[in-house]
């Protein structure tokens, strides 16, 4: 029998998962041999891959702190991945315990793990959904349980959109999500850019990710800037992620090679 369209995909843990590779780069052990093997191939192509991942994770941490300080208490983290150290709810709820967080990921293992972590936390939950189907996210009963779209929301799309193809119109996807947000909401976004790296490096990295569940699609600064349409960028604008409001002088030695570009914008 042919599997009908609406039947769910099966869990294929024999294939490297971008989410678990990311966990490996951050120093976690929430990964399997296939993930580690692919991650090591990535490190062979881009030796700073772990540092790049860590820099991106640090951007997430700094942006959440910034957003809590800016008064936001609701977080919608799309593409949250494997909840390794320094999750949004840990950062936000430590600063403002009433903060609510909804994690969204397409990877069922990541969602399963998130639920285990969040067990007992009434202000945070995880759902499985695809960023390419924003309406499903916005209408999801679990999302509506914790997020009041009449109040400002921090929409976190960190290190996700480079897994979305141009044909899936990432600008429209962000636009659809933006249309659900109240004024005073924020978008924190980063994604892999094609800048600062030689084509050969990119080819090698792309080859590694082609083997995974999520092939890479990098974008230039101009395209990434477009994703913030409708948002007013906060200082310092769209930058290499280590440059975004760094909290130490010894952040990243060569920011040009940090791959991730990102920023935070406020909805007018």
């Amino acid at each position: 029998m042919r599997r009908p369209d609406w039947a769910p995909e099966t869990i294929d843990i024999d294939r490297p998962s971008a989410a678990r590779m990311y966990d490996y780069f951050l120093g976690g052990s929430h990964n399997f041999a296939v993930d580690r093997e692919a991650a090591q191939a990535m490190i062979a192509a881009v030796p700073e891959a772990p540092l790049i991942a860590q820099a991106n994770r640090a951007f997430l941490r700094r942006s959440v702190r910034f957003l809590v300080e800016a008064g936001v208490r609701q977080f919608l983290d799309i593409g949250s991945g494997i909840p390794t150290v320094g999750n949004v709810h840990e950062i936000a709820q430590a600063m403002a315990p009433e903060s609510t967080v909804v994690y969204v990921d397409i990877d069922p293992v990541a969602v399963g793990h998130s639920r285990e972590i969040l067990d007992g936390n009434e202000r945070a939950l995880a759902i499985r959904a695809d960023i390419r189907d924003p309406d499903r996210i916005l209408d999801h009963p679990d999302v509506l349980k914790l997020i009041d779209f009449g109040q400002p929301v921090a929409l976190m799309i960190v290190a996700v959109l480079h897994y979305v193809r141009d044909e899936d119109r990432p600008t429209d996807l962000v636009g659809r999500l933006r249309s659900a947000l109240a004024p005073g909401s924020y978008l924190a976004l980063s994604q892999a850019s094609g800048e600062g790296r030689s084509p050969a490096e990119w080819d090698e990295a792309s080859a590694v990710y082609k083997r995974t569940d999520r092939p890479l699609h990098n974008r230039g600064r101009a395209e990434i800037t477009q994703l913030f349409d409708g948002f007013e960028l906060v200082e310092p604008g769209i930058v290499w992620v280590p440059e975004w409001r760094p909290d130490s002088s010894h952040a990243f030695e060569d920011v040009e090679r940090a791959i991730y570009i990102g920023g935070v914008g406020r909805l007018r």
Partner: peptide, 25 residues
């Protein structure tokens, strides 16, 4: 611990997928 936890998550996810598949079937 982390290995155990990710394996458990994979197992649960797989069970859920199978359950969903059975339901869809």
């Amino acid at each position: 611990d982390e290995q155990e936890s990710i394996r458990r998550a994979a197992m649960v996810a797989r069970e859920q997928a199978e359950h969903a598949l059975r339901e869809s079937e």
